[in-house]
Amino acid sequence: MRTDDKTEGQPVNRPKIMVVDDDSDLRQALSLRLRANNFVTVNACDGYSAIAMAQKEKPHLIILDLGLPAGDGFAVLKNLRQYPSLAEIPVIVLTARDPETNEKRTLETGAVAFFQKPVDNEELLGVIRASLQAGWGWGGALPSNPS
């Protein structure tokens, strides 16, 4: 567990979540929601910067869109597995694509959960907390629900 996380004035010692989506409005909304729930957030807008950002920031969890420029979500999932330091980060896929053709494939490529947009916020937060608790990325206590 690291205790020296500092991201642009955000508080330290909290799980860090990377949001990967090419829609900047949605990135912003999700980040706001996550920060309101006491998570630290970083963003990436395409497949290439997702990997670069993950290497730099070492997030504890990744929320990943499938339809991305410069390497789609599947490529990102596969790429993450190439780096020992990133391979264990839980990835939650959040996409507009249909579950019938994508859910199984994303879970087989290593994601821990699949959500189709629009997602119920409480459900998403529940799975985020469960994934962090499962002990891959986050060894500390979880931030409590503010509400």
Binding site: D23, D25, L26, A29, L30, L32, R33, A36, G67, A96, R97, D98, Q116, K117, P118, V119, N121, S147
Partner: peptide, 27 residues
Amino acid sequence: LSHVSHELRTPLTCIHQYVTLLLDGLA
């Protein structure tokens, strides 16, 4: 239809996210 549904979902998700942000008093 699968394409249209995908394209409709993207802006819908955005509306949904911001409306719930406002409703939950996060702004």
